[in-house]
Each structure stands twice: as C-alpha cells, then as structure tokens.
Design a protein around this nucleic acid. Structure first.
Lengths: 147, 147
DNA sequence: ATAGCTATGTTTAGTAA
DNA sequence: ATTACTAAACATAGCTA
C-alpha cells in the first residue's frame, strides 16, 4: 500500500521508529541547510536518537551558534504556542511547574551561593553522565541482535 | 506567476529574503516537532535571522539538548565499556560528603533525569542572577564615591 | 542501518494583503 | 513582521532490497 494520511504521534514499532527517525532527520538537516543558504542566516540543529547517536549541523558551526545563543541577553524563546502539534511546549511548561528545588536563593549570601553553584555544576555533570550512560546501555542492548 | 524550480542560493532582495526566512523557519520548527513526537527523540533547533532575532526550539528543552551535546563524550563513538551504569558511583559517594544534594541520580530513569536537568537549569539561572545582583549592588556602592 | 521506489500528503515561491 | 492563496515542487510512509 502507499501512503495514507499520517497522524503525528509516537511510533510504537521500534524498527519503524528508527527508520522514520533516519529519514526525517535527513529531511530536517536538508531544510536547515536550505534555510541557511537561501536566507543567509545562522542556524544549528542537534538531534539525539533513542539509540544515543548524536547528529548535529550548524552554520557557520554548531559551537558558534550555540555560544551565541547562550550568550544572548534575552532568549526570546519564540517557540510557538499555537498548539498545532505543540505538545512539547506543554511538557516544558510542566517541567517548570515541578519546582524540584525550592531553595531560598534570595536570602543566601555570596559564600553560600558560590558553594551552591559549585555543587550544582557537579550534580549537573552527574546527571548528564547518567543520561549518557542510560543511552549507551540501551544502545548496546539493541546491538545484540546485529551480526 | 506560480512557482518555478528554485535554485538554493542566497536571495538578494532583502524583503523577499526575510519573508522566506519566516516561512522556512516555521517549516523547520514544525519538522523538528514532528521528529521529536513521532520518533521519541531529543532535538534542538536554534536560528538567528540576519536581523538578529533569535528563535529556538528544543525538547525537552533547548538547554538540556545543548548541554548534552556539549557533554557528549565523543561524537559518533560506539558504546563500549564506558556505557555501564557504574560510571556515576564514585561521584555519588563524593556527593554524599558535600551533603547539598542527596538526590539518588543512580536510580532515576530517563524521564526523571530530564525533569531534573530542566529544573537544575532554571535553578542555575536563579543562582547566577542572584550572584549578579549582589555584584551589581556592591559595585554601585563603590561607585558612589566616584565622579 | 541506509537506499530506491511511487503515490500522495505537505511545503513553499510568488504575490498581495 | 506575519498571513492567505494556489499550483508546482518537495518530502515521506510503506515496501522492497
């Protein structure tokens, strides 16, 4: 059969999901390259597959775009709230509402703040490492079936 | 006239270029959202128009994807011995000595980790803002004596 | 995992508002 | 800056290899 109208929701079948990821990732990168070239703009695209593979594209480079974004005074975050497929925005908002850390930053003095900052840096590394660890493990599991 | 075969090169006319940028940026973001939703992947897109406007989208957040990219061990490395869960163990021990965060990162699943990551991002901003606030005020006090 | 195929849904250049 | 319109160009689901 040929193509039918497709609903944008999570693909349950693992193999299909990966195939679709590969195709759509290629399409996304192509679009980004066209945008950059036709409009003389700067852009970066970073993707992680569930298997943990990293794919990134950036013009003039991923790092330069990321740095510029990080250093931007005000991040407009103009990620639309139009709610077409905007499920992602809701999830992000949900995260903001979790309020995992209710530390009274306002009342801390400089010394406390510096300690807190260092502690957070270390914790952050742990979390990222843990994420990468999980991803790597699942990647290994998937690879078991391959020759 | 309707559309002709288009060559992917820089659009010289400024107004046209901006119009195309707006359209194609929207298309790019839509594609990114579909990729995230259908394939359950993480992705971030950051664009700067020539006018300097920032547009960014990320799941679960721009920062988390950027940080994960920055912290990635090696770009296309196959998961080998480093992917075991035990990576975090030593640092966790160290953390207990600090006593500031007793969060059991080791036992958290992916979803929890993502939320934690986002929560830390925001907390970090608060702390940095607070530090900047202190620095600014003390700076102002010093400035009182200057011409 | 990635590539070719094809029918069909989707995006977008050109234009005007 | 963004939006509506339309037809041509384009991307891609479902297959196969």
């Amino acid at each position: 059969m040929v193509r039918t109208k497709v609903e944008i929701k999570r693909i349950e079948d693992k193999a299909k999901r990966h195939t679709t990821f590969t195709k759509r990732r290629q399409g996304l990168f192509k679009k980004a390259k066209e945008l950059v070239k036709r409009c003389d703009a700067q852009a970066a695209v970073i993707t992680f597959s569930l298997a943990g593979n990293i794919f990134a594209f950036g013009h003039p480079s991923v790092d330069s775009v990321v740095n510029r974004y990080t250093a931007a005074p005000e991040q407009d975050e103009e990620a639309e709230k139009k709610g077409e497929d905007g499920v992602v925005d809701e999830e992000t908002k949900e995260d903001e509402e979790t309020g995992m850390f209710e530390v009274p930053v306002k009342d801390m003095d400089m010394e406390e703040l510096e300690k807190l900052n260092v502690a957070m840096e270390e914790m952050k590394k742990k979390v990222v490492d843990r994420i990468n660890g999980i991803v790597s493990s699942s990647k290994n599991e998937e690879d078991l079936g391959l020759p």
